[in-house]
């Protein structure tokens, strides 16, 4: 884990509108927060964040990322079963997201 910074990670969670989800967005976020409890202190915020976790129900990911990108150092985009444009098996979604949050120095993203 590259989480050298001791202060809690400021995490902004942004959902899509949820018209036709192929994943359970709320449950996924709960699982991610649960999983982070063990490794990483987190402070949820709606303002400027270290990481923005954008949770979209389907691959279309219609959330306007431009509005979020300027208010976060890193952006993780969940779009149905894709994370940062890579397909991830359903049972590994929360693990991969936690890993990306913990290793954020390595995930300059291409969203």
């Amino acid at each position: 884990m590259k989480n050298l910074d001791k202060r809690p990670i400021k995490l902004r969670i942004k959902y899509c509108g949820g018209c036709n989800p192929v994943i359970n967005r709320k449950q996924l976020v709960e699982e991610v927060l649960d999983c982070l409890k063990v490794s990483t202190p987190v402070e949820l915020t709606q303002k400027h964040a270290d990481i923005a976790l954008v949770v979209c129900g389907c691959p279309t990911a219609c959330v306007d990322l431009a509005k979020i990108r300027n208010h976060a150092e890193y952006l993780i985009l969940v779009a149905g079963n894709y994370i940062n444009h890579y397909q991830v098996p359903s049972d590994q979604m929360e693990k991969v997201i936690c890993q990306l949050i913990n290793e954020r120095e390595e995930v300059k993203l291409n969203c």
Partner: peptide, 15 residues
């Protein structure tokens, strides 16, 4: 209109 970006950068339709 419901297409999405792929990891390579080009866009894919909604399958």
């Amino acid at each position: 209109a419901e297409g999405r970006k792929t990891a390579a950068g080009n866009y894919l339709i909604d399958i």
